[in-house]
Simulated scan of single mutants.
Amino acid sequence: MKKIGFGFLVVILIWVIWANWSFRSELPPVISEISTVSQIICDTCENGDSMSLNRNIVGIQPYMLETDYLSESQFLAKLDTYFKVAQENGFFREKTMVLLPEYLGTWLVIADEKKSVANAGNLTWAMAQLVLNHPFRLSTYYGKSEKESDRIAATLFRMKAEKMANIYKQVFKQLSKEYQVYIAAGSILLPGPEVKNGMLEVDIEAPIYNTSFVFAPNGDLIPQSIRKAFPIDSEHPFVTASPTTDIPTFDLPFGKIGVLVCADSWYPESYQAIQGVEVVLVNSYCAIDGAMDNPWGGYKGAPPPIDVDLNDIGILNERQAWEKYALPGRIGISGAKIGANVFLRGKLWNLGTDGQPFFIREGKLLEIEEAEKGGIWSMEY
């Protein structure tokens, strides 16, 4: 028995050393990876001078690396490189809205974790390390994740929710105040997120939503949350759908705006919920490298709307399907003629990323200069 007890203590000691090893190791320098900075020319303006228009949307496609999420300072520094370049190019003005992509805040789930989590070869091993790092904390939250079929993923997001929400709020508060712009800050997975007294709070007992928020130039977090109504198949095990009737609109000093989270832009009900807006913004994440050139596999996560031609499945490629059935093809349902859609890009374990922005002015899909990695585009309207 003494030998068994000694062996158990050795195992515990090894685990303690492993679990705490490299928490304080130095993080690598932030690399911006910006390959395109572009002002989208207005072909209907006099001499193509879009500067004569007094409002603009700045779409930022950050190229994120796993290490960008290991601390609040790292996350802020990475995004600040994009905001700084946008400012240097004269993109930030009195009436500017910055649009960021879906899932941008989600990978803050690894914030303050070991560097080995970021360096894991695949997401499964990265999440397994979170489990191994926090077995006792994990047990506290596991019992609160009974309704999700992927209890481990749901438990990890609940366990890190308060830290994730705080970093998300603090970083975008600082960026909006420093650069004096509105920010549609991309999305983050949080349980029961609500804005109370200017603070982003979570409810650990509540369902997990894929949620986005808007920040004002004074750093304030606008109270309405934008929760995804149509989670896709890969999200269903731990993300809860929100009713389309809860999709908010924002009456801002330069117009009425609606924001949709990725797949919501594929369904007419989403646009009907925000009818009367002048601008529709969409944040997106498309997994798998080169996905936009692959044959379209049809709707994933919910039945297709009745206006979808099922013969397009396997015939259109993914990008063509986005153009036909997402923002470019459906924006008119809302009454808006101005729109933008940006995608998350980067190297995120084995997930892959793809997509180039869509910009729509006067109901017309515009040609843009594509970005190999990160990109910044400004469209005046």
Rank of each mutant, 00 (worst) to 15 (best):
D354V: 01
C42L: 11
Q320N: 04
K2E: 10
R227A: 14
I12P: 03
E367M: 00
D150K: 10
P193L: 05
I226M: 14
Q129D: 03
G121D: 11
K169P: 00
R227Q: 14
V11A: 14
L108P: 03
D203T: 04
A184D: 01
Y168A: 10
V282W: 07
Q224S: 14
D220A: 15
I34F: 09
Y381H: 13
N197M: 08
N317G: 13
G143H: 03
R55I: 01
Q87M: 14
V308F: 08
V282I: 10
N47T: 09
M1C: 10
T155V: 12
P29Y: 05
K300N: 15
I41L: 15
G301R: 03
L190D: 00
S52M: 14
R227W: 01
M199L: 13
T44M: 01
F6D: 11
A111Q: 09
I222K: 01
S35F: 07
C262W: 02
P328Y: 00
M159V: 04
E162Q: 13
G105P: 07
N47I: 04
N350Q: 07
S139K: 11
Y63R: 09
W15I: 13
I14R: 06
K160R: 15
D233G: 11
I338D: 00
A336H: 02
K300I: 03
K337E: 03
Q356M: 08
M127K: 14
I152H: 06
N218S: 12
F91Q: 00
L252K: 12
A154K: 04
P135K: 08
W107K: 09
L316R: 02
Y179C: 08
A302T: 02
A287T: 00
L138S: 13
R137M: 08
G59A: 07
E323K: 08
M199T: 15
V279M: 11
V282A: 12
I274T: 11
V342T: 07
G339A: 06
T211C: 04
T249Q: 14
